[in-house]
C-alpha cells in the first residue's frame, strides 16, 4: 500500500512558496525534485505536468491543488508539497485560490501507485483538521508527521 508520508521527504517540501502563479509554483516544486536527482529530464517533466493543467483543473477545492502527471521523466512515484499563504489560482471549480499544493508524478509502469496516491491524498485533504495542520506546520518534518498520523 502507498504511504504518502513515506513517498515525500523533507527536501521535497516548501513551506513558503516564492511564486504566486500556477506555472511558477509547479516549476518551483519540480526544481525540488530535480535537485534531489529524482528527475531525468526537467523539461519533459514540467511539460507533462503542464499538459494536464491545460485540460484539467487540478485544484480540487477547499484551498487544495494536486497537479499531477504520468511521465517518462522519472522512474518512481514522486511527491512534493508547497504552501502558499497568499494562495495560487489553480482554476478550482469553487473559484478559490489554493494554499496547499501537492505535486505527484510517476512513470507509466507505476500507474496503479500513482492513482492510489492521488486518491489517498485527495481523501486525506478533505479533512478539515488535516488542512489546518498543514497550514500551521512550522517545519517540513511536522508536515511529514501530520501526514503520517493521518494514514
Amino acid at each position: 500500500m502507498i504511504r504518502i508520508s513515506e513517498a515525500i521527504c523533507e527536501k521535497g517540501i516548501i513551506l513558503d512558496l516564492k511564486t504566486h502563479e500556477k506555472i511558477g509554483v509547479i516549476k518551483e516544486l519540480v526544481s525540488l525534485m530535480v535537485n534531489l536527482g529524482l528527475v531525468a529530464d526537467e523539461e519533459t517533466f514540467c511539460s507533462d505536468i503542464l499538459k494536464r493543467e491545460n485540460l484539467e483543473s487540478t485544484g480540487i477545492g477547499l484551498g487544495v491543488a494536486i497537479p499531477h502527471a504520468r511521465t517518462a521523466a522519472t522512474h518512481d512515484l514522486l511527491l512534493a508539497f508547497g504552501r502558499s499563504t497568499q494562495g495560487v489560482d489553480f482554476n478550482s471549480l469553487d473559484g478559490k485560490p489554493s494554499h496547499l499544493i501537492f505535486l505527484i508524478a510517476a512513470p507509466e509502469e507505476k500507474k496503479s501507485h500513482y492513482i492510489m496516491a492521488l486518491a489517498r491524498l485527495s481523501k486525506m485533504l478533505r479533512k478539515e483538521d488535516m488542512r489546518a495542520g498543514l497550514s500551521k506546520a512550522t517545519s517540513a518534518q511536522e508536515v511529514i508527521d501530520i501526514l503520517k498520523r493521518a494514514e
Binding site: R52, L55, E56, R70, K111, I115, M116, L118, A119, R120, S122, K123
Partner: peptide
C-alpha cells in the same frame, strides 16, 4: 477517489 482519478486518466 480512485475511480474518479481513473476516469480522469482516460479523459486526459
Amino acid at each position: 477517489w480512485k475511480f474518479l482519478y481513473e476516469i480522469e486518466d482516460i479523459a486526459f
